[in-house]
Each structure stands twice: as structure tokens, then as C-alpha cells.
């Protein structure tokens, strides 16, 4: 498996695993680290890699901006639908990550 695909696979696994870890309950500071990773980086990273932007600095900064934006958008939507819970929001972020990683993996090399 190519290196690029390994990263996509690992990102996809994070999208599945991190929400489950948070749901299961983790001790601090592990919980904070996992939550920051999922809310502030992983979904944006999965989507940004799909879009093929420039270098690593660009990738990291856009990933953070996009992750935080996706979290804000999903959370606002859930509030508008009176269906808000932080865990539900985290599951949606995990799902976005999974889908973006799957699309990346499904692309021809």
C-alpha cells in the first residue's frame, strides 16, 4: 500500500475510533487530547487532503480552520434541529472523516 493510502487509512480509522473512544469515556488528559484532535484537526485534514492543497503548512492550517468550521456548522445545525448533544456532533465529525477518507482511498492511484 502506498504511503498516501496509509495516511488516508489511518485518518479513516481515526474518524471511526476517536468518537468511540470519547463515547466510552477516557481519563484526562487523554480525553482532552482526543477531543482536540477530532474537533480541531482530523475531519478538516481528511477533507483537505482530498482537495490537494499545496504544502504541509497550508495543509495543517486549512485542516484546523476547516475542522473548527465543520464543528461549528454541525453543532449549529443540531441546535437548530433541537437535536443537539456533543456526542452526536462528534459522531457526525467522525462520519465526515470516514467518508472523506473512503473517497481518498477509492481514488485510482
Amino acid at each position: 500500500m502506498k504511503r498516501v493510502e496509509w495516511i488516508a487509512a489511518a485518518t479513516g480509522i481515526s474518524g471511526l475510533g476517536l468518537p468511540l473512544l470519547l463515547a466510552a469515556g477516557l481519563p484526562q488528559p487523554l480525553r482532552a487530547v482526543v477531543a482536540f484532535a477530532l474537533i480541531g484537526f482530523v475531519p478538516g485534514f481528511a477533507v483537505t487532503r482530498l482537495l490537494g492543497f499545496g504544502d504541509n503548512v497550508m495543509l495543517v492550517v486549512v485542516s484546523i480552520a476547516l475542522s473548527l468550521s465543520l464543528t461549528a456548522a454541525v453543532s449549529t445545525l443540531l441546535l437548530s434541529l433541537t437535536a443537539w448533544s456533543w456526542l452526536r456532533c462528534v459522531y457526525v465529525l467522525g462520519a465526515i472523516t470516514l467518508v472523506a477518507s473512503a473517497v481518498r482511498l477509492g481514488r485510482p492511484a
Binding site: 474537533i39 464543528t71 461549528a72 453543532s75 449549529t76 448533544s85 456532533c89
Partner: peptide, 29 residues
């Protein structure tokens, strides 16, 4: 768990606060 835009201006632009609510709950900080 819901928006009440009648409360004040902040609840009419809730995006950041919705993010903050998830961040503080999920991190447990």
C-alpha cells in the same frame, strides 16, 4: 440544546458558541 434568538444578539450569531459548547463538553476541560 436549542437556540433562542429572542434572548439577545449573541443567539442570532451562534456558530462560535455552538463550537465552544462542543469543545468544552467533549474535552471535559
Amino acid at each position: 440544546g436549542q437556540l433562542d434568538p429572542g434572548l439577545d444578539a449573541y443567539f442570532n450569531w451562534p456558530g462560535f458558541f455552538a463550537l465552544l459548547a462542543v469543545l468544552s463538553s467533549a474535552t471535559g476541560l
